[in-house]
């Protein structure tokens, strides 16, 4: 109880004082995770929609695989990417290890399956409703895809939020490929892990509270956005 109160007070003080180090960590967390989510959406939304719109051999295998990948443990992803981009690994020459780019790659691998699977589900329902009409307009697959993505936007925003939740809360992958280097690759979750290992439990918890506050703010913002889209487009 004592510790929890202390953490709350500390979190409040850190936020109010706009502590430079904390701000830097928060900014990097947002940059890395938002970029990973954006890349995942850019790839995953069309990919999920295509999976929803097409029928081909092996489609079910892909869907099962996609769903399974949603449960990938972050440390496994971190390790796999470490092995790939380590200087001794196949992509070592790019010197990506211990950079924010490596963290973005890792989080993209974690988020992409979630965005793809949720997009597929959303678009599958919508496509059942729209397909005949869109085909009757003579639209090719590209045109139908664009229509479905736009009209499915409220559901797709939810997919992006779910992806963001996974990215910003994840520690196992970014700590391996980022190295938790101060001022370079230290993000909220790795900082929390570090403070915990130092036994600075109140500080760790305070950072955790800030992370939750950010998460809450992001969700509230997207929820408002989604509600607005709903109001304008739905009965």
């Amino acid at each position: 109880m004592q510790e929890a109160l202390e953490a709350l007070g500390l979190a409040g003080r850190l936020i109010v004082s706009m502590d430079g180090d904390v701000l830097e960590i928060v900014a990097l967390s947002l940059q890395v995770s938002l970029t990973a989510v954006a890349v995942s959406c850019l790839i995953g939304l069309p990919l999920g929609a295509l999976l929803a719109m097409t029928r081909f051999r092996g489609r079910n295998v892909l869907i099962v695989l996609n769903n399974a990948l949603m449960g990938l443990p972050p440390v496994v992803v971190g390790l796999a990417i470490y092995l790939a981009i380590s200087r001794a690994g196949p992509f070592g020459v790019f010197g990506l290890l211990y950079t924010p780019t490596a963290m973005i790659i890792a989080q993209t691998v974690l988020v992409l399956p979630i965005v793809t699977a949720l997009a597929r589900q959303t678009i599958e329902d919508l496509n059942a409703e729209y397909d005949d009409y869109l085909r009757s307009l003579g639209l090719g697959i590209g045109g139908r895809l664009r229509t479905l993505l736009w009209d499915g936007r409220t559901g797709l925003i939810t997919a992006a939020i779910a992806g963001m939740g996974r990215a910003i809360a994840e520690v196992g992958a970014v700590i391996i490929v980022g190295g938790n280097i101060d001022h370079v690759t230290r993000v909220m979750t790795t900082a929390i892990a570090l403070e915990t290992s130092k036994g600075e439990l109140a500080l760790a918890m305070a950072l955790g509270i800030i992370l939750m506050a950010i998460s809450l703010a992001l969700n509230a913002a997207t929820h408002a956005l989604r509600g607005d889209a709903m109001r304008r487009m739905y009965a």
Partner: peptide, 27 residues
């Protein structure tokens, strides 16, 4: 040959009325 079909159960896009028409003639 350009066909246009009005379905028994109309499919209405999640957009405004004029955007629905614009979408239909976009191709």
């Amino acid at each position: 040959r350009r066909t246009a079909m009005v379905f028994q159960r109309p499919v209405i896009l999640r957009r405004s009325v004029d955007a629905n028409i614009r979408h239909a003639i976009a191709p």
